[in-house]
């Protein structure tokens, strides 16, 4: 569902490759967690899949469609939650969700919108307040609701739980489990080794634009992920 084929990208200002010959496939029902330090190429990979970055070589595909050739069609099939969800301050949580949903092609009744917000964990009292007064965690929850409301086949998450408190983070992890059960393909860039181990069906450790290790669910069960991560970075 989410595929990269020998994806390569070098930014003009940088000496090293940002993404180096990366081949990856996330199937429906799978959650692939990308681990790695800042600058390892996680976000660039996601940007290639969103069409924000054009690869120098290789391809990024969503549902079999080339992202560079069909930028609009591929974007319609994937929902995206950035590290920092940005919203329109003059509008309430419900209004923000309604706007993003309508632009994604879905028009929901008011009750439907509130349900998405509730599922994302935003308390009802906050639904009608202007988001200018929201905390980072609350914005993140609206971002999750926006992704849910898009009803996409695939999900791209770039550090989605940063700024969430542990219990909200736990709720989010349960939500991801449900979505995976529903058959979504999920690619999540994260620094959170604990959550990666808990939630992912596969974990990849990225370094210098390459996947240094890929661990399956079985392997994850009996691996000290933190030790492996630190060893990989030490090389």
């Amino acid at each position: 569902m989410l595929t990269t084929e020998a994806l390569t990208k070098r930014f003009p200002s940088a000496a090293a490759l940002a993404v180096d010959n990366l081949t990856l496939n996330v199937a429906p029902g799978e959650l692939f967690a990308l681990l790695g330090p800042n600058g390892a190429g996680k976000t660039t990979t996601i940007n290639c899949l969103l069409g924000f970055v054009t690869p120098d070589a290789g391809r990024a595909l969503i549902d079999g469609l080339d992202v560079t050739r069909e930028p609009l069609e591929t974007k319609r099939r994937v929902a995206y939650i950035p590290e920092q969800v940005n919203l329109y301050g003059y509008f309430s949580g419900v209004e923000n969700l309604a706007y993003f949903s309508e632009l994604a092609g879905h028009r929901y009744p008011d009750a439907g919108l509130r349900k998405f917000l509730a599922v994302a964990g935003l308390e009802p009292a906050a639904h009608d307040r202007r988001v200018a007064g929201y905390s980072k965690g609350m914005r993140q929850k609206v971002g999750i609701a926006i992704a849910l409301a898009k009803q996409a086949k695939a999900l791209l998450l770039d550090e989605p739980t940063s700024g969430l408190d542990p219990s909200a983070s736990h709720e989010f992890s349960q939500l991801l489990h449900q979505l995976r059960e529903q058959g979504l393909a999920i690619l999540m860039a994260t620094h959170d080794l604990f959550r990666a181990k808990q939630d992912a069906t596969r974990v990849g450790i990225m370094r210098h634009g390459r996947l240094a290790h890929i661990l399956t669910a079985d392997e994850l069960g009996h691996t000290d992920l933190e030790k492996l991560y630190l060893e990989t970075m030490g090389n």
């Binding site: 974007k75 950035p82 632009l103 898009k150």
Partner: peptide, 14 residues
């Protein structure tokens, strides 16, 4: 600057 443009374009808005 606010980052909302990125989210709009990620939705597939022309």
């Amino acid at each position: 600057e606010r980052g909302t443009l990125r989210q709009l374009l990620a939705l597939g808005v022309q």
